[in-house]
Amino acid sequence: MKSQVRCSVNGAACSFEVPPMARLLDVLREEANLTGTKEGCGEGECGACTVIMDGRIVNSCLVPALQADGSTITTIEGIAKGNVLHAVQAAFISHGGAQCGMCTPGMVIAAVDLLTRVVNPDENQIREGLAGNICRCTGYTKIFDAVREAARLLASTP
């Protein structure tokens, strides 16, 4: 069984002919060729597959394609505006927030989501906001630094 799944991905209207139970993660990676979204566990625990769906972050490994029908999705490829990095991305580079980079797409998305919900997050809010994204490399410290810096950057650019 295949279904037609139509959604907007990073601003582009897309249509996929896929089994309705196909994971959104696989649709993005294999049908849309957006391999920036990563699989770390396949069971909602690691956050490497995080994308924004209709304004909320979700684990794309746990979303059946059919439920994405009609939705608006942003993946890591849609976070920068052309060649201009998002403040979170820039801060991840300058503060060493990415080491091996496997958690990074999901982590950046979670951080962007946090900063849209909370303008100037305190330490606990940062920790809470990223708690669904496991990073095995950094010990998180540099990621917290990056998120704080991104919050400052966003506050200073209207």
Partner: peptide
């Protein structure tokens, strides 16, 4: 000095290609 790492931009934009990609 903490120069920016070379693979930084690719990693934060999802362009970095890992084996499964």
């Amino acid at each position: 000095k903490s120069v920016p790492r070379k693979e930084g931009p690719d990693k934060v934009t999802g362009r970095a290609r890992y084996i499964d990609d």
